[in-house]
């Protein structure tokens, strides 16, 4: 299984790999039921924001990302994202919200915007993923209008290279998706926490995989390596949402643990 898409040409046919494959198969086979946490409510689950006139451009993307998160990290997830309107009472059960689309869309109602604002203010995380295929299109315009209304006065800014998001799990050097429409990520910070991340590089396009196990879209220009990078960014986004600035602390801890000397 591992060798299918790993572009490094590694074909480890060792016992370990077989065991891993077996375990992976078991996980896949058992997919769909809570993997041991106290109830489904304790699992990580993506929520996609349903806005009128904005269909899901990549319906299988989040499920695939959830599976990759389970495979690669200790986080436990359920596979299918939940589709929620902003007014849905269950919105706050899912602090990781994804807004994806490939076209312009209408601004939600004031009530919905207020609810979204509340969601973000009290700790929710919003990932905005454009599948439009280019920077600055209709989706982009709608997004910026939405953000201006939801978080007035807080324009999205480029996320600097030094931000902990680039090392919340993997060490990343770029933010490619299916394409590289813009070589950067934008975000909005609240109380020193990145609450909104906006990419125009169609991350979903890189993650999407059909029911037969085939990647739905070509990744350009980097091919499989770039797809791997896109998955790693997805994992980092989840890790960041769940651990916040944990990894900055880690660097300090390393230093402190190595050099600390208490007189006794």
């Amino acid at each position: 299984m591992r060798g299918v898409w790993n572009g490094r040409g590694d074909s480890r046919v060792s016992r370990r790999a077989l065991l891993r494959a077996g375990a992976g198969a078991a996980l896949v086979a058992g997919w769909g039921r809570p993997a041991g946490a106290i109830g489904e409510r304790s699992l990580f689950r993506f929520a996609r924001a349903v806005l009128p006139g904005l269909p899901d451009p990549r319906p299988t993307a989040l499920a695939r990302l959830a599976w990759e998160v389970v495979r690669r990290t200790s986080v436990q997830t359920t596979s299918d994202p939940v589709q929620l309107r902003l007014a849905d009472p269950n919105l706050f059960h899912h602090p990781f919200l994804v807004l994806s689309g490939d076209r312009a869309f209408a601004l939600p109602s004031d009530g919905d915007i207020a609810r979204l604002r509340r969601f973000i203010t009290y700790g929710g995380f919003l990932l905005i993923d454009s599948s439009e295929g280019r920077a600055g299109g209709g989706f982009d315009e709608s997004v910026r209008r939405l953000l201006a209304q939801t978080l007035p006065g807080e324009l999205p800014i480029r996320i600097p290279e030094s931000h902990v998001l680039w090392k919340s799990f993997y060490v990343l050097h770029g933010a490619p998706g299916r394409i590289v429409a813009a070589p950067y990520l934008e975000g909005v910070e609240r109380d020193r926490r990145l609450a909104v991340v906006y990419t125009q590089n169609d991350l979903g396009g890189a993650w999407a995989r059909d029911g037969f196990g085939r990647w739905e879209h070509e990744v350009v220009p980097g091919g499989d390596d770039q797809r791997e990078e896109a998955f790693r960014l997805g994992v980092n986004l989840v890790m960041y949402a769940l651990c916040l600035d944990y990894k900055t602390e880690q660097a300090h801890i390393d230093y402190i643990l190595r050099t600390r000397r208490y007189p006794r």
Binding site: F44, T73, S74, V75, P95, G123, L242, C243, L244, Y246
Partner: peptide
Amino acid sequence: RPSWDERFLRA
């Protein structure tokens, strides 16, 4: 493991 319970306590 990372979880929402952990995330909000950490915050």
